[in-house]
Nucleic acid binder design. Structure first.
Lengths: 189, 189
DNA sequence: GAAGTTAGTGATTGAGTACTAACTTCGCCG
DNA sequence: CGGCGAAGTTAGTACTCAATCACTAACTTC
């Protein structure tokens, strides 16, 4: 029932992988969990991807790409403070509506750290390149001031971490954010 | 040879656990790896701690506590901008000299997120409490302005993430940091 | 120096996991 | 229809890992 082309399947595997890896990280996620979510047998994943690492890599790249596209479309035609608010709004909305993206990011960071620690720099290269694209996507519209962009990204990272820790959005840790980044609503899990 | 009291052993298990969990995360670290580092048999860990989770929790608490103590001792007697530079310096030095602390932090965040996702809020409570202590330790000396403290912590988180991704410290992503937080040297792994 | 306690080990188990190989089913095209 | 390639499955392997149990060695107390 419902056969797909290998390419389409790979696509749905990536989506499922983002979801599962976001929750369990690389080691905490079994390929079986991913396969179940796709609705396909577990060994079939290994016909679509050479191994588990490749699936994780694809999920990481997807996550970076989507965030970059979000930045790009939010900022279209805007500059300076307007651009800043636009990205901040778009990003906070992403986080509240789809926490997977946020958690997958964190998972990606720790996975990179682990890979680098054992001397594997390939994964790191990919992620750093993706991050720099993200950076540059924000950098120009925000005014091309490294200090500004750094501060902006820093806020983003703090938001990630606070949200990951599960601080409810009416907690006082959120007090100090500039209003456009204040999140209203609640992170659903 | 070299018998220790259970309390002393627990202490060295925690130290080893911080090191190992920092690299592999919860699921990527075997209790055997920890035991090997301690120099003790793997089953003995389960006489010192009820289970693996408890070891991870202890390592997380230790990590938070040490960071808080670092903040507190760096900031002693200082206020405002001076305090800010003092903490920033101390923290960047910690990161360069002992990357375990940094990585353990990230591992802790993703573990909390995972725990919360499956409805276990106990671990989250502990980590959030520890984080708030950390927050408050910095908050007062920095001038008790929520915006200032938020910005300060945000920079810290960005540093964590950039360092975790393995950006060398002469890379342009580090350009935008205020000078006191600029890291010189190189992260050893 | 015997009695009791605490530190520590070896062997094992049972569940889970990434990955392989060999087989089956579907859909399309002549 | 028939057959062929691509999509997908079932069965299986080799391995890892948390946790348990039954036990021994070393220290302490009386």
């Amino acid at each position: 029932m419902a056969r797909m082309s290998a390419e389409e399947r790979r696509e749905s595997v990536i989506r499922a992988a983002v979801h599962e890896f976001a929750r369990g990280g690389y080691h905490g996620t079994s390929t079986e969990a991913i396969a179940k979510r796709v609705g396909v047998s577990q060994p079939y994943l290994f016909r679509l991807f050479p191994n588990k690492q490749a699936i994780f890599l694809a999920a990481s790249e997807r996550c970076l790409k989507e965030t970059r596209e979000l930045f790009a479309s939010a900022v279209e035609g805007l500059h300076g403070e307007e651009a800043q608010h636009a990205i901040a709004n778009a990003y906070t909305r992403l986080i509240t509506e789809d926490p997977d993206k946020l958690q997958m990011q964190l998972q990606m960071y720790v996975a990179v750290a682990a890979a680098e620690a054992v001397g594997d720099h390939e994964f790191g290269e990919v992620v750093r390149a993706g991050w720099m694209e993200l950076w540059d996507t924000a950098h120009l519209p925000l005014g091309a001031d490294p200090n500004e962009t750094t501060t902006f990204m820093a806020y983003g990272m703090l938001i990630n971490v606070l949200a990951a820790m599960g601080f409810p959005f009416d907690h006082r840790v959120w007090e100090g954010f500039y209003p456009s980044a204040r999140i209203t609503g609640r992170l659903e899990r």
